[in-house]
Amino acid sequence: MTVYEIQHWLLTTLGSVEIVKPIMTSKWGWPICESLHFVGLSLLIGTIGMFDMRLLGVAKRIPISALHRLIPWGIGGYVVNIITGSMFLVTAPDQYLYNSAFHLKMLFMAVAGLNVLTFYSAVFRKVNVLGAGADAPLAAKWIGGASLFLWTGIIIFGRLLTFYRPFACGKGGPTGFLATCL
């Protein structure tokens, strides 16, 4: 299967999801989902970003395990955004599947996912027992810094989606991974 064939298969498969289309094509459906996507984004970057900053050394007198109790709120924001994001994707799959900003956003989200897995498998048990005033180990700092970098990148590519929509390429324009047309 070529990249082009995979994209075409995704286009028809995602495009065949009809259930959310009545909501998303109504007057306020799409705008309200966008607003919720931005609220979810803020909740995620606020709580997870705060945790990352603590790993990097801000507010060391807060025990890491105590601040970790805010993470479920960030996961809540993430879930809101997966749901609303999927609703955009199945309503207008062509606007995303052929969009290089979307490709980079998905790539960064995959790496951010691996970063989370690395954190919980390699360093969580070590940092969770640290008390007030303790500095996180270097590995945890790298993971926290990577998290801030990746989520900031995800916001940037998400916001740039609008400007890399495939119609800018014109009919029969380039497709495939990271095709550029601007």
Partner: peptide, 18 residues
């Protein structure tokens, strides 16, 4: 500029919300 505005939104609203 719009992307910076969104990053700032995430941190100012998000950290306040936390």
């Amino acid at each position: 500029i719009l992307a910076y505005h969104t990053i700032g939104m995430g941190f100012v609203a998000g950290l306040s919300a936390a």
